[in-house]
Design a protein around this nucleic acid. Structure first.
Lengths: 185, 185
DNA sequence: CCTTGAATGTTAGTCGCTAACATTTGTGAT
DNA sequence: ATCACAAATGTTAGCGACTAACATTCAAGG
């Protein structure tokens, strides 16, 4: 990261410009062309960095880490706890400096109906991956599905709550949400 | 309904054409223009009947009836049971002849990711209306939200399951799904 | 320095969707 | 029946998200 490649720099510029414009004028009202221009680039280039307009907000690289964190927990744990604690751990180890950006993204998502739908779809992918991981380690599919669905639902609801009124750190908010689900031993 | 007005007739023609084309060639691949042409009408006219392309599948008129059915149950029942049983009753009283069309719609939705997202959004509206109804009759907002969300989640999951493998009538499938939630007295 | 591949620009086009205005068509009162 | 009014549809023009094909500039490595 010492020498960010040019591609990384433009991607960052696009994200920055997009967040600014979305917050200022709303998601729907902001044009991809406007974002690109604000980042000193062409509309075409935007789509070379993000497959869709939504992706600039939803494309988060945390998914694989999340799956890995769940996989790292002992397979002897019941799937439900395994998922809940894996997710908890993954978010706890998030570098603090990134949280403000995450918060801006989630706030925009929270107050844009069409983005909430997209968020749901995106979560669906994570859910599938999570189920796959749990089943690969021996969980019954039906159990894995319920576990993944409810843990992710709690996670998302925690994210929304935190974005609206951040009473503490992101990690704390996530843990709070997961506490509702996790039954401590 | 003896004398369907012209508007109703074209709406029906559009729905019919849309279902056919979607099943034949997939939702994303089918153009609004194609649907309109197949219904003997212009693309513009399509949008005079449906606000969006999705709406031809999601625009179902059952929502108000569903809310009414819940409202009709004794307000003395706990919100959760009230919602579950209201929903159950609303679907039970569905005219049988309509179910084949419903099934076609839901199958298409089930296997089109973007439509699943849209379905989620649409359900969100129903959820809000349901919460409103429950709260208006004295339920605590937090309780009402949980009740509405879980009952509707069960409903949707029942719909998907039935659309994929209809082992029985729609009403039976719905009741089966709601049984998972409803605690019989 | 110079070459090669990555990153970007240009142009043109499709599809979902909207607006403004003109035209037809159905329907209700006479 | 008919005639007038309103509902339903057509036409044209255009915006915004997104894609494809091809040309151009830029940036690291030898």
């Amino acid at each position: 990261m010492e020498h960010p490649t040019k591609r990384e720099r433009t991607t960052a510029a696009l994200v920055h410009a997009a967040l600014d414009l979305f917050e200022r004028g709303g998601y729907e009202q902001t044009t991809v062309g406007e974002i690109a221009r604000a980042a000193g680039v062409t509309e075409m280039t935007f789509f070379r960095h993000f497959p869709t307009k939504e992706a600039v907000l939803l494309d988060d690289p945390y998914d694989p880490e999340l799956i890995a964190a769940v996989g790292a927990r002992p397979a002897s744990e019941p799937p439900f706890l395994r998922a809940a604690r894996g997710v908890r751990g993954a978010w706890r180890s998030l570098p603090e400096p990134e949280t403000p950006v995450i918060r801006r993204r989630i706030r925009i998502i929270a107050l844009t109906p069409s983005l909430r739908g997209a968020m749901w779809r995106s979560t669906g992918n994570t859910e599938r991956a999570l189920v796959e991981q749990l089943v690969a380690d021996g969980a019954a599919p039906a159990v894995a599905r319920v576990a993944a669905a409810s843990v992710l639902a709690a996670l998302v609801s925690g994210l929304y709550a935190w974005a609206e009124a951040p009473d503490g750190s992101l990690a704390e908010a996530i843990e709070l949400a997961l506490d509702v689900i996790d039954v401590r031993p």
